[in-house]
Each structure stands twice: as C-alpha cells, then as structure tokens.
Amino acid sequence: MTLDEERLNRHVQTALNDFGATAHAPLVVIGDELGLYETLADAGPLTSDGLAEETDTAERYVREWLRSQAAGGYVTYDPETDRYSLTPEQAAVLADETSPAFMAGNFGVALSAARIEPRLAEAFRTGEGVGWHEHDDDLFHAIAHSWRPQYAAHLVDDWIPALEGVEETLRAGGRVADVGCGHGASTVLMAEAYPESTFVGIDAHEPSIDAARRRADDAGVADRVDFEVATAKSYDGAAYDFVTTFDAFHDMGDPVGAAAHVRDTLTDDGTWMIVELFANDRVEDNLNPMGRAAYSISTLICTPCALDQEGERVLGAQAGEAGIRDAVTDGGFSRLRRAAETPLNLVFEAKP
C-alpha cells in the first residue's frame, strides 16, 4: 500500500492537535479552579512569579502552565516583558462566568466523562447502557458550571419572551415544572425572574436534587421552589402552565413516553419549552467543530444514559429539529416550532 505523504502529514497534524487538546483539557480545569484565568484578566499582564504570588500557587508549575496556554492561544505572551495577559475575548471565554461565551466549564465535562473509559469500552462490546449515576461526581458539577452561563444570558431575556404568552403567564403567577433540572441552575434563574410563579425542579439523580435544593436556598427562592426525585415519565403534579427541559430530552431512554407524560401534566393551553444542543438534521451538515464536540459527548454520556433506560428511541445529542419533532409529536403534541437559537442551542416550543 502506497501512502500519500501530504495526506498522511495532514492526518498526523490533526492527531497531534487533538493530542495537545487532550493534554490541555485538565490544565484548563486547573486554571479555572485555581483562579488563574480570572486573576490574569483582573490583574494582568503578569509574569509567572506575579501570577503565582497573586494566586498563592507554585511558580514553577505556573510558568509551565502559562507557556502551554500561550502555545494554545488561550493566553497572550509578550516576549519583551516576559508577561502574560488575556485579551477581552480570551477573558470572555475563560474567565467571565457571566459571559455566554464562557467555555472553561465544558472542559470539566469532557475530563470527568472520560474517567469511566473502561466502563464505556465494555459497553461498546456488550451494547448495554451506562447510567447517569455511574459517572464521576465531578461530571454533574461540571455540567452545571458549563451550562449556567448560557441560561443566565438567554433564558429570561431571549428564550422565554420568544414563546407565545409564556412571559405574561409567569409574571402573573404560573405553575412551572423544570424536568431534568440537574443542579437547578435553570429552575433558580426562572424563580428569581418571576417571583409570582411557583416552580418544581425534577431530576432522577438524587445527589443533583440535593445540590439543587442548596442552590435554591442560597438564592433565597426556596419558599417558591420544590424539588422532586423522579423521571420525566413519572413526576407528580398536573395542570402546569409551563414545562421546561434543558439539554436533557435527548438523554431520555423513552423520549416519546416522556413527551406523553409532559402532555398529560400540562394545561390545555400550556407550553413545553425544549432546549437542545444545536444540530442540523443531516449528518453531513454536522461534520464540523460543534458536531464533533456534541457527537463525542453524546458517545460518552448521552447515548449510554439513554441505553441504560428503556432505550426505545435513543436520540443522541445531535438529533436535530426533525428528530425532536418526531419524538414530541409521537408523544401527543400537535405543534412544535423553533422559537429561538444560539450557536450552541436550539429552543423549541411545543403546544398540545
């Protein structure tokens, strides 16, 4: 077999880039956890000595970390002063948790998901699922850390106003169920924005519900927010005016059954908002950086989770609008429309 040297070199470069990115991921998590990015953004430009002193860390580690960050384009280096800094754009991605461009938390998701690689490899051989609860505990914290900036930036200002009549209902006082709430970031944000409404956060993962209760208590909204350990097909209550599902519908082993239960628990004129990862309907249109990230995370987390449940219709994280529509309408909803979108999310409005 004759190799095309130019093509081979391109593949080697791709693999080298990915190897570097894999080694880089834990360093992003460390920089986030130790406040290295935040300190650079606030106090930079700094030498490695200066950053170590500001963050009470060891200079020799910090020096090597800074050089790796500069090589990857995450930090800016000035060779004349031997100082490092963050541009406003780098800071938005790495240091500002209020920025919708904040991405540092996503590295924690990938890193913690990879910790059960032997279990996932065995699932590849057997076809069995891997339960949400089988993952490292850091995964659940990382998911909350990575998604909250998106919700904080868009949920109240953009997504809910894009829905028909929902904002008015919530301002007047509605009943809301947040299905698949995780650590409750979305639930608490809505409760803070709409003090006349009451909320129930629902998740099948009991440790996440415990964390959500603490989050609601810290935010001062616990008097209007309850949390329930239950699946999307079994949660209690009825006559909800508004049901939400944030980046979780594709994780469900029976999305049609989940949709049917949501339909049963909504008022006749209620609304279900489904927020999903951005995806096109055709595979070839998802073969890009966003698609690679989403398909990879789906292989590590979402697909195994759905297979661990009924696995009747495993959507995966790149189901696209057509896949979501089919599951929702098969579950009894008559209408589904794309109400809003961002580079990372699609926001759907389902009506009975």
Rank of each mutant, 00 (worst) to 15 (best):
T2I: 14
E6N: 13
R7T: 15
L8R: 14
A15R: 04
N17F: 09
F19G: 06
T22E: 04
L27M: 14
I30K: 08
E33L: 12
E38M: 07
L40I: 08
A41P: 01
D42V: 10
G44H: 03
G44V: 05
P45L: 12
D56I: 13
Y61M: 15
V62Y: 06
L66Q: 03
L66T: 06
R67Q: 15
R67N: 11
S68E: 12
A71R: 09
G72M: 12
G72Q: 10
T76M: 04
T76L: 08
Y77C: 00
E80T: 15
T81A: 14
S85M: 06
S85E: 15
Q90G: 00
A92S: 08
A92H: 02
A92Q: 02
D96V: 05
D96H: 04
M103H: 01
G108T: 08
V109Y: 02
L111N: 11
L111E: 15
L111V: 15
A113S: 13
E117S: 11
P118T: 06
P118W: 01
A123F: 01
F124V: 14
T126P: 07
E128Y: 00
L139I: 09
I143G: 03
Q150H: 02
I160W: 02
L163N: 10
E164N: 12
G165E: 06
V166S: 06
V166C: 07
T169P: 00
T169M: 12
G174V: 12
R175W: 10
R175V: 13
G180Y: 04
G182L: 11
V188C: 07
L189H: 06
L189W: 03
A191D: 05
A191T: 07
Y194A: 11
Y194E: 05
Y194L: 06
Y194Q: 04
P195S: 13
E196Q: 15
P207S: 11
P207G: 11
S208E: 15
S208Q: 15
S208W: 10
I209F: 03
I209L: 11
D210I: 13
D210V: 14
A211P: 12
R214G: 12
A219H: 07
V221N: 06
D226A: 15
E228S: 09
V229K: 01
V229R: 08
A230G: 08
S234P: 02
Y235R: 04
D236H: 12
G237F: 10
A238T: 14
Y240M: 03
Y240A: 10
D241Y: 07
D241K: 12
T244M: 13
T245D: 03
F246N: 15
M252K: 01
G253K: 01
V256H: 01
G257M: 02
A259Q: 08
D268Q: 09
W272M: 09
N280A: 15
V283F: 11
E284I: 13
E284L: 13
N286G: 07
R292V: 11
A294R: 09
S298C: 00
L300Y: 10
T303Y: 01
P304T: 09
C305L: 00
R313Q: 10
V314Q: 04
L315F: 02
G316D: 01
G316A: 03
A317G: 13
A319R: 03
G320I: 04
A327I: 05
D330S: 10
L336S: 01
R337A: 10
N345I: 05
N345V: 07
